[in-house]
C-alpha cells in the first residue's frame, strides 16, 4: 500500500468512528458543540500520531505478552502531557474539554490503532496511519457536532444560525447524539454502497 493511501484510508474507507466504530464514547459525549468537538478532534490527532510513532519505535523492545500495559503507559503519558499543556497554555480550552482529554486514555481508537497497526509497521507508516485516523475522527465528529449544534441549539461555534428559530433541543442531549450518529453512519454506508457499484 502506498504511503499516501495509508494516510487516506482513515478518512473514508476505514474511518475510525463511522466504519470501525471505535472511540464512540468521546464522539457521543463531545459532539454537542463544534467548539468541544474540534478541541477533542485536535487532541486525538496529536495523541494518536505520537502514540503510534512511539509504539512503532518500541515494538521490537516490548515482549508481546506485556504489550497492552506498555501501550497503556505510553498513551496515558501522552494524554497527561497534552492535558497539562492545555491547562497551562490554553485555559479556556481546558475549561471546555478538560474532562474529555482525560478520557482519551480509554479512547479505543488509540489503543486499537496501537495494537492493530503501529505494533506491526514502521514508524513512518504508523505516523501516517495515526494522522489519517485522527483526521478521520475529527471529520466524523465535526459532521455529527455540526448537525447536533445547528439543529439542537441553533448555533455553530456558539454563533446563532437562524435568528428567531426554536431549535430541536433533544439533538443536544445524549439521545440526539445516538440518533445523529446512527443516521450519519447510515448515510456513509449508502454512499459507500453506491460507490462500490
Amino acid at each position: 500500500m502506498s504511503l499516501f493511501k495509508e494516510f487516506l484510508k482513515g478518512i473514508w474507507e476505514k474511518n475510525p468512528v463511522l466504519v470501525l466504530s471505535l472511540g464512540l464514547c468521546p464522539t457521543l459525549a463531545t459532539s454537542g458543540s463544534m467548539k468541544n468537538a474540534v478541541g477533542m478532534g485536535l487532541s486525538v490527532i496529536a495523541v494518536l500520531t505520537f502514540s503510534n510513532i512511539i509504539i512503532s519505535l518500541i515494538k521490537g523492545f516490548v515482549p508481546s505478552k506485556i504489550r497492552i500495559p506498555c501501550y497503556i503507559i505510553v498513551i496515558a503519558f501522552l494524554v497527561t502531557v497534552v492535558d497539562m499543556l492545555i491547562a497551562g497554555f490554553a485555559p479556556e480550552l481546558s475549561k471546555a474539554i478538560g474532562l474529555f482529554i482525560k478520557l482519551i486514555v480509554v479512547n479505543c481508537i488509540i489503543l486499537g490503532r496501537a495494537e492493530a497497526f503501529a505494533a506491526k509497521n514502521n514508524p513512518l507508516r504508523a505516523a501516517l496511519d495515526g494522522l489519517g485516523m485522527g483526521i478521520g475522527f475529527l471529520i466524523a465528529i465535526s459532521i455529527i457536532a455540526t448537525i447536533r449544534e445547528v439543529l439542537g441549539a441553533n448555533k455553530w461555534f456558539g454563533l446563532t444560525v437562524f435568528p428567531g428559530w426554536d431549535p430541536i433541543g433533544i439533538m443536544i442531549l445524549p439521545a440526539g447524539a445516538l440518533l445523529t450518529f446512527g443516521l450519519v453512519m447510515a448515510v456513509r454506508n449508502v454512499l459507500a454502497q453506491r460507490r462500490a457499484k
Binding site: K65, C70, V81, G88
Partner: peptide
C-alpha cells in the same frame, strides 16, 4: 518483563515530571 515495564514507566515518569515543571506555573 519487569525490566521492560520498569524502563517504560521510568521514562514516562521522568518525562511527566519535566512537563509538570514547565506547566506548573501557567
Amino acid at each position: 518483563y519487569g525490566l521492560v515495564l520498569l524502563i517504560i514507566a521510568g521514562v514516562a515518569g521522568v518525562g511527566l515530571s519535566l512537563v509538570d515543571r514547565i506547566t506548573k506555573e501557567p
